[in-house]
């Protein structure tokens, strides 16, 4: 924890710098898209957020497996502290996608495979949080949380696949995400930068949140009293 504390400001400022730099690059130094105009520039928020929202679930699944197999308490603290951040990024992805949808598709909501599975992911995050918070006995709550995360992690690919399968029939092809013009290299570099920067920022948030969890859960231990 103390090493993390020391590294934390470096990670934070570095990723903030990367993100702001790519944002600046993406917003001001790249040309307009000739189909979508300036509105496409929301991808510098939307793409990193949707990327992170799924990777966070994967991280939770790994941490849950570690907890169930080796009984490492820290890993379940990590699961619990990632869950709200995952919900938040999923929410950002949904909202930014929806805002993007207005100028490009002319509507807030489309029954598109990716959108639907992101919404389901969002609900699953909220379900995980409410499950954990409804038990007073932490050990029970931890067990149930990690089981549910693991079961969910088996399910998420299935949900994604089946939703894609479903939308191929119902969805008029003109408004799927794959229809947008293939991305140009000029836009790709700042996009990569923004993904890296955003990931770093989220990592900082995870560190802060897990610090909070550790202190909350171990508040009776003497080292926490010394630390606080």
């Amino acid at each position: 924890m103390f090493q993390v504390n020391r590294a934390y400001p470096y990670i934070f400022y570095l990723s903030l710098a990367i993100y702001l730099f790519s944002l600046f690059w993406g917003l001001f130094l790249t040309p307009e898209d000739f189909v979508q105009g300036n509105s496409y520039r929301i991808i510098y928020l939307h793409v990193p957020a949707s990327f992170i929202s799924q990777s966070l679930y994967l991280a939770m699944a790994i941490a849950s497996a570690v907890y169930l197999i080796w009984k490492v308490k820290l890993s379940v603290y990590l699961v619990r502290s990632i869950a709200p951040i995952g919900a938040m990024t999923t929410f950002i992805a949904l909202i930014s996608g929806s805002i993007w949808g207005i100028p490009t598709w002319g509507t807030w909501w489309v029954w598109d495979a990716r959108i639907v599975s992101t919404l389901i992911l969002f609900i699953m995050y909220l379900g995980l949080i409410s499950l954990h918070d409804s038990f007073n006995n932490y050990e029970k709550a931890d067990k149930f949380l990690s089981i549910l995360v693991l079961v969910g992690s088996v399910n998420i690919p299935i949900i994604k696949m089946s939703v894609e399968w479903w939308s191929t029939l119902h969805q008029p092809a003109s408004i799927t995400l794959s229809e947008k013009p293939a991305i140009d290299l000029v836009m790709l570099y700042p996009l990569f930068g923004s993904i890296i920067g955003f990931t770093g920022l989220i990592a900082c948030l995870v560190i802060l949140s897990s610090k909070l969890q550790i202190i909350k859960r171990e508040k009776n231990k003497s080292w926490v009293k010394d630390y606080v």
Binding site: G127, S130, I158, S162
Partner: peptide, 18 residues
Amino acid sequence: LGILVTLPMLLPLLIILG
């Protein structure tokens, strides 16, 4: 609460049923 956490897992089944 139980339904909230399990209903999303049944969505693929509903798609198959459709």
